[in-house]
Write a protein that binds this DNA or RNA. Sequence first.
DNA 1: AACCTGACTTCGG
DNA 2: TCCGAAGCCAGGT
Length: 111
Amino acid sequence: MLKNKTVTFTQRVINAIKSVPRGKVATYGLIALAAGNPRGARQVAWTLHSVTEKEKLPWHRLINSQGKISLPKGGGYETQKELLIEEGVAFDRQDRIDLDRFLWKPRVHRR
DNA sequence: AACCTGACTTCGG
DNA sequence: TCCGAAGCCAGGT
């Protein structure tokens, strides 16, 4: 199997994001962690930009650690919020998502 | 090869 | 709880 370490962090990030189930959300840091790089949160966001269209990833399920949408209003914020609500994710009065209820906990690669 | 940028995270006040 | 500053990683120019 892949002894090939050239498998980029990006590849694993894509895989992790694809694993996020409908109705759940994940933070960038969490994905980064699942991909094996706790410090690569920024890279996760960046990667998302490059492969969302190609891989058709559920980009709207990614939020920041504060439980809020990172996109600016008018820049996708509203779209993301709509999509999440469609999936049953709720927002509180401060536009934050209740992570205790909707945060998806990825399985760390065993072995 | 060096420098810049970003859909982040964490810490301190 | 909110705001600002520093840290980190990889791709783009």
